[in-house]
Design a protein around this nucleic acid. Structure first.
Lengths: 343, 343
DNA sequence: TGATCCCTTTGGAACGTTCCAGTCCTGCGG
DNA sequence: CCGCAGGACTGGAACGTTCCAAAGGGATCA
């Protein structure tokens, strides 16, 4: 093996190199890559052979400069926080990377200041570093979406524009109410009558949406909801406290929670009281995190179809980048239930 | 608010626009951005004002083309798999994004075929889409590292080059043996004498490294290890079975596991037998995943300093990209122990 | 035979930046 | 008074691609 020490690696071949080798012009090589059907078949074969031999791949920077497109999708990830919320986003990022990769796009991740929800977007946008954004966490009052819309920047939101009925951007979301309904109905079918809800504070749109699925399911069987609901912070400690109070005061036989984090809190309370989840008290969580999958005896949980979300988002992005002024409808997907030992 | 419907958004301002507005040449604006100390202070101020007014940001594609650098770091993420292994990588990605962002780099994620560990690298490299790679999962026999090294592509590995003592690339890793030692010593200090190990199959270098920390700690106190170790797949089910067998045959009072996944398996066994983790049997996991943090009563776990790993990796990258032919040493970091209810 | 059309291929220009080799100007020493 | 050095700024060229207008060469038709 020859390994010339310290030698500067040869620069990658360019269009011109391929053209010379194949005995055609630059433009013909470019066409061979981008519009193969413009070439005569024998010319195409000759060019492709030269491309193969030289290991040619179009220089991205040059292509980006000329076409004013980067084939990059920007997504901001948020500082780590307690609980299982991050895990859902991480799962989504995986799906997004795979799906957009198949569509010829790469995902560029960036971080932003904890304080400024817009930090990072502006620079990437003005320097035309990305073609579009995927915006998450639309529940924060959604300043990114409004800001991006104002700048006419292409983006797709994972999450409904809760606070902005005039929003015209495409979005994809998961039907939280349907998920909670699914979970509650599952418990009803197992014979439970008193099913408690532990959810997030009232100002969380997502939390209220999920909660509505719980109450809808109970009311559809003429069962009461009064005294059976609690709204707290999304932490294990809050879930533990809330479930302890509910057990004492409302005597439920099952819990439906707005997150796996809260459901873990319930499991803490059960463990403290020597109650067995699934046998003595049923528990259902939300998001189907790793935690739900591995905690004994398995936590039944509502699973968001994040793979499908990614597919729909990439579809919307392709539409957006192909037809710049198309107004896209929102897409609402239905979650499923992963049933485990806790119910 | 004026909002001209359907109008094509104005193209972003260029160097020339700024130059005209400030009454200087393109090059002077370029210098104002990249080498401010070359300008007279009054000129600099005038240019900066023009930049501000126009909202100018250098076009990335043009800059990349000219400087042959993209300020992007490529990282391949692997298809989701069972267990908590992914969670660690996700945590690392977060840290990497934040750290590299501070150094002026963005992270480009890409997926590759499940079958071909090299899939994706080649194209990004030849098209000069990224400046460097961060390679993870070096335990697979590490074909990426060897391949990249052969191509003289800049990269830093998260993980030691176990199989290749000749490797000259920079790497950063966490001392797994020290972590397991830490965990075991912690249990010894709490009075445990018979401490079992549940780890991975013998062909896992990482697994054997961690295991060596356990046996080292026991031997340093002249305690036996015979019959106390088990090597299995990294799944909850395997952990459960292994711990059941060990409890019956070796009667340990504590378990140290090579992963939180395996530790959760132990918790399953304990739950089945009515044993309380932490009170009846102590359990320590590895990786400090979400699971460890929220499962009752809290799982003591070895925590990898991933934030520090990211910092060291970015340092190495900067060195690599600044001085192309520097041979960098490896960096080995020491993990910490997150003590919780299970011990 | 010449005009017309279409298919294939071509060369120049442009995308927006930075590199490079200057030019201009001011101040200083001889 | 002249020559020279060095600081501040400039204009052309180049990075590698795609767009665009046009040229070459058959084939078809009058």
């Amino acid at each position: 093996m020859t390994r010339s020490l310290g030698r500067i690696p040869a620069p990658p071949p360019t269009l011109a190199d391929v053209a010379e080798r194949a005995g055609v012009s630059r433009q013909t090589v470019s066409n061979a890559v981008n519009n193969p059907d413009l070439l005569r078949t024998d010319t195409l074969a000759r060019v492709q052979e030269a491309i193969e031999e030289l290991g040619y791949s179009p220089n991205r920077a040059a292509r980006n400069l000329r076409t004013r497109a980067s084939h990059l999708i920007g997504m901001r990830i948020n500082p780590a926080q307690e609980g299982t919320a991050n895990a859902t986003m991480d799962r989504f990022v995986h799906s997004l990377v795979e799906t957009s990769g198949e569509a010829g796009y790469h995902v560029l991740l960036f971080a932003g200041s904890h304080l400024d929800p817009l930090d990072g977007y502006d620079d990437l946008l003005r320097s035309t570093a990305v073609d579009a954004f995927v915006v998450t966490d639309t529940y924060l009052g959604n300043p990114q979406a409004a800001w991006l819309e104002l700048r006419r920047a292409p983006f797709v939101a994972f999450g409904r524009p809760w606070d902005n009925p005039d929003a015209t951007h495409p979005w994809v979301d998961v039907d939280g109410a349907a998920g909670a309904d699914l979970a509650t109905t599952h418990l009803l079918d197992r014979g439970h009558q008193r099913i408690a809800w532990i959810g997030w504070r009232k100002d969380s749109r997502i939390g209220e949406d999920r909660r509505s699925g719980w109450s809808r399911a109970l009311r559809s069987r003429d069962l009461p909801t009064t005294g059976l609901a609690s709204r707290v912070e999304d932490t294990v400690a809050s879930g533990r406290e809330a479930s302890a109070v509910l057990l004492d005061e409302a005597r439920p036989s099952a819990f439906v929670c707005a997150s796996d984090t809260l459901a873990m809190g319930v499991l803490h309370t059960l463990a403290e009281r020597g109650l067995a989840p699934g046998r003595d008290i049923a528990v259902v969580g939300f998001d189907d995190s790793q935690v739900a999958q591995v905690v004994p005896p398995g936590l039944t949980s509502v699973r968001q179809p994040l793979e499908d979300v990614a597919v729909e988002i990439v579809k919307a992005l392709e539409g957006l980048l192909g037809h710049p002024h198309r107004t896209s409808e929102g897409v609402l997907l239905t979650p499923t239930l992963a049933v485990r030992g806790s119910s």
